[in-house]
Design a protein around this nucleic acid. Structure first.
Lengths: 373, 373
DNA sequence: CTGAAAGCGCTTACAG
DNA sequence: CTGAAAGCGCTTACAG
């Protein structure tokens, strides 16, 4: 039944190379690992055999021997869909752009160092998450954890056994953390909305309640609203979840209840803003004319929305690349230079806050140039 | 200098467990691997020790022993930016949504089977691509290759040594391929444009010239245009590259040359359409009033564009999941049920072709319901 | 049912 | 400079 075919030639081992070159496996290993011991002639014979056989060392064997896999594990939280979640956004959230761009950043940095990226996801309420993550850990040299994948107690435990860096979390005695500066740009955004546009009521559409980023963003906005004399709106009915569906649900309910809308909705992130704008558009409510909407992250889609999304730019790829470098610095059981690294952010004014569209030419030149202008 | 800290407790090995349980390592291994040999008492002692020590087997050691890593390698092509590429799209293309969603599909399917996803990317013209891919192969049990990562000759060679499935490529004697049906939906789209909307000139904004998908899409469009009596426009100046920047460049040049625009631009994929619509919007050209634009893939952003993008829906996640299952079926050096699996596609009429916007209520119910209506 | 031993494919002291 | 041997941490025939 199991239609075994013998036509796949087995991969050569170091023994095959040694035999072909007429040397010991130790010599093969030495030339392949760049030791300078082997003399030229030996080296040549080995290299020739390696080339002819197309030999590449088995990763598992090498890893077992040198105690280094050159693999970095990354785990993120995969949303889980319930009956009543909005199907419109299901696949979109599965795309998780923010996460994807970070992972891309990790991968690129890893590649430079000869590492590869081993990806795992856990579902929310995945009671098997712990084991799954541990399995991933045993297939890699260290772990990068996205937000919300492990509760603090578990995290503390895990990080005593393997190097761990978290993203958008908080640094601890045993873990490192990489995040971006939420506060200062959020303050700038608040001032822009209040002073430049004269908006008097600002609502905060929150992310996960216990996310440090969420707390910092809310806090900055609340403070600036207070000092700017604007009304700050928040509360249970403004509780989102960082996903488009969450933003859509919040605004959908508000509209259904015929509740008055604030002049501006400041979203915890771009995905949330996506959902908000989708619902507002469907209801024919003008953005930014009737209500302004802003995001946070500047994910790639942000500028394809109409109106283009005013948001706060995080160096997303860089977040990932930095996380990798920090992790790598911890891998030999060493102390990282810093356990809490924070990257700068920048306000990107586009149309959804009420600013005029950028002139075509500027758009052509791209976002980086805009900053200079 | 290297600030070695001894506070990370080493992970327990199977020897530690055996000692704690007072049994041999063979017994530990047996209970952990679900053999039914060990009697209850032995089993209990082992399980207790495992729990206390938090033992999880090392992946490399296990892989070496059972000759199975439970890791699937995935490689995709990472775009490389030249001086004159449009910076606006740089990060966006780095996000590569189509690829990301496929990878997500692979990951989810893999997770179900206890596999993890090992990701690697190669840059275009990466002359080290071969070695990089081989290294990835030696860290996994088989490879899934996205489009354009390896030339056919190399692919043939590689696939004799490790199980390989390609995505959107073509099946060979030694590789399997998973793709979606480009032809029938593209024909339907062409007819829709010609018959329902009465458009008389259709341009095809191409993807990579040697991509089978690109060829099939162009072909289907050309044939329907011919039989429908519409003018079919193509050529070197309509050569894109599947990225937003490519689409933007093509249309940007056309506009700069003051060349007449076709009534409809049929793009090889959604990312291309993204770039096209971005440039048209920047120039104040009405879509679909002046020129209609369509895509292919139905990536998550498609419905957030204004106008919403008419496109052909591929079951993107499913493509990934299927690729994984096919690969897994090949992993024990076995013959897959089929070496050429093709998944169905479906035309999704939204606004950019000239159709009216969907009523809000339908939008709420989501895309799957629309199909029924 | 259980343990001692061999073996998976590498790397690296250890001798020479 | 080079080879024989030990060891990395598992699994699984092989005996008992």
């Amino acid at each position: 039944m199991a239609d075994a075919q013998a036509n796949m030639r087995p991969l050569p081992t170091i023994y095959d190379v040694a035999r072909a070159a007429g040397v010991s496996i130790a010599s093969v290993s030495r030339v392949l690992n760049g030791h300078r011991n082997p003399r030229q002639e030996t080296r040549d014979r080995v290299l020739k055999a390696v080339a002819e056989l197309g030999f590449v060392p088995d990763g598992a064997a090498r890893a077992l021997s040198v105690r280094l896999k050159e693999v970095v594990g990354v785990v993120f939280r995969r949303p889980q869909w319930t009956e009543n979640s909005e199907a419109v956004f299901a696949e979109e959230d599965e795309s998780l752009q923010f996460t994807d761009v970070i992972n891309r950043g990790i991968e690129v940095a890893a590649q430079h160092r000869g590492y590869n990226l081993l990806v795992g996801s856990v579902a929310i309420n995945d009671h098997d998450a712990r084991r799954r993550i541990m399995t991933l850990a045993r297939k890699s040299d260290g772990l990068i954890l996205h937000d919300q994948v492990l509760e603090p107690a578990r995290l503390a435990q895990l990080s005593q056994q393997v190097p761990v860096v978290t993203l958008a979390g908080v640094a601890t005695q045993t873990t490192a953390n990489v995040r971006s500066d939420s506060g200062s740009s959020m303050r700038e955004l608040a001032r822009h909305l209040i002073c430049d546009h004269g908006y008097e009521t600002l609502a905060y559409l929150a992310g996960f309640a216990d996310s440090p980023d969420n707390i910092a963003r809310r806090q900055a906005l609340a403070e600036e609203a207070a000092s700017g004399g604007a009304r700050f709106i928040e509360g249970p009915q403004w509780q989102g979840n960082y996903y488009a569906a969450g933003g859509a649900r919040v605004v959908g309910r508000l509209l259904a209840d015929r509740a008055p809308l604030p002049r501006a909705i400041v979203c915890a992130n771009d995905q949330t803003a996506l959902g908000v704008m989708y619902v507002l558009a469907a209801q024919g409510i003008d953005v930014p004319g009737t209500v302004a909407v802003t995001g946070f992250d500047d994910i790639p889609v942000a500028r394809h929305l109409r109106p283009q999304l005013t948001t706060i730019r995080q160096p997303i790829q860089n977040l990932g690349a930095t996380a990798f470098e920090v992790l790598r610095s911890m891998i030999g059981n060493r102390e990282p230079a810093s356990r809490d690294v924070v990257l700068p952010t920048r306000l990107v004014r586009r149309e959804s806050c009420g600013c005029p569209p950028e002139p075509p030419h500027a758009a052509w030149r791209g976002r980086d140039e805009q900053a200079a202008g």
